[in-house]
Design a protein around this nucleic acid. Structure first.
Lengths: 227, 227
DNA sequence: CGATGTGAAGCGTTTCACAGCA
DNA sequence: TGCTGTGAAACGCTTCACATCG
């Protein structure tokens, strides 16, 4: 398996996974890169090139065996096993994340949640124990946890990130609206709905003028959001 | 203002905004591209190049006036006004989104929520009225709403997207775990924590072997997640 | 002198086009 | 014949390096 895969390629693999599962559920056994591309909104060439980074999975003249490719991608992404995670910050958002039923079926198990507020420490959220922030490092080290979900306010997020990294966390799913700084080798993904909305408004900016049917100075074609 | 801006550039502007606000709060009046780059985890060159797509905002020998640049970026992104949005799908996730206090201060106002379930139609979530899905199109058209937040189950999401697009929605913030298909000119941003986690596991995949201190065949440097 | 704005170079990703194989 | 896998071309983004100017 090649040692340097473009990050954009890795980012697309979960999409492939999801679509292949749907196809398997529909009883589709073989799929061509053209068909997969249509389902995913990409080009056949991109799918073939992406997969070629990891090996040769197709049968010429036929396409890809859905079930086999599903298995291969699952293994490539490291999803044949389950992953324990911790959550930091048990506010409104943190609770919603713990309660979200989509993580467990994908193999991500929230083992503990941490918060600085003594009034909620000791309680349970959806059977996940809330522990004091001071015990965070020990728990992560003892349980050999590598993934953390961060749902604290933005102003303490960087401190928490530094602590997480120091005790062995290697992947952080960040819900705090801030710019995370981490050393090389640590993967951070930030989920930020406001940021997403703020990029959309750029493209919507002055559309009301167009809607008013006033044929002003001809507005040039503006780039649209990808996908 | 140029008519074709790379999408990656637009995606970064909200980050710039956020950081500039923090700097303004800290009383910083002037910032150089080097300082901004450090705060953002990018290079000075990228910031200068990004900004250059929209005009000339800096003073040579000095840097950028924080407050002025903030205003310019706010205008560029179309954020000097507030944006009405609708939410579709009032399940656990939909409620969490409505309840999330971060949208309103940024100027995004959820005007109505829609759901097919008659048992919740007519209720309010955090003072947002839940209306029947059948009234969705009329409401969007009457109120001239351009942005929708989608929080339905994945299997109905594409149908909803088609309806949204048909009645004038131009930007969709998609929380459904699926691949959205939209015509050109419609902006979709998908928020998918599972996808984010699944890309992280790729980089963590076989780290336990390394941890076990068994000096196996030398493992090459593997690419890490950007940022 | 210090920092911007920007052509041009460098680099990474996507697309093309076709050889090779079932 | 049909579709994969893949070098090579095309494209787009990032980085460089410097002329320019307060």
């Amino acid at each position: 398996m090649p040692t340097d895969i473009p990050a954009v390629v890795v980012d697309r693999l979960p999409h492939y996974l999801r679509t292949l599962r749907l196809m398997l559920d529909d009883g589709i056994e073989v799929v061509s890169s053209r068909e997969l591309g249509e389902a995913l909104g990409t080009t056949p060439a991109q799918i073939r090139k992406d997969l070629s980074y990891f090996g040769r999975f197709g049968k010429q003249g036929r396409g890809y065996d859905v079930s086999a490719l599903l298995g291969d991608l699952t293994r490539i992404l490291g999803l044949e096993r389950s992953w324990p995670v911790v959550l930091v910050g048990v506010g409104r958002l943190g609770r919603a994340i713990i309660t979200y039923p989509g993580l467990t079926p994908e193999g991500f198990h929230v083992r503990a949640a941490f918060d600085a507020d003594p009034s909620i420490v000791g309680s349970n959220v959806d059977s996940v124990p809330v522990r004091p922030a001071s015990e965070m490092e020990r728990f992560i080290r003892d349980e050999r946890i590598e993934i953390a979900i961060l749902a604290t306010p933005g102003d303490v997020a960087q401190d928490v990130i530094d602590r997480l990294v120091a005790c062995g966390i290697r992947g952080i799913l960040n819900y705090a609206p801030m710019t995370p700084h981490v050393p090389n080798g640590i993967t951070v993904r930030t989920i930020d709905p406001v940021q997403a909305l703020q990029t959309m408004t750029f493209y919507l900016r002055d559309s009301e003028e167009e809607e008013d049917l006033l044929p002003k100075r001809n507005r040039g074609r503006r780039g649209n959001g990808r996908r």
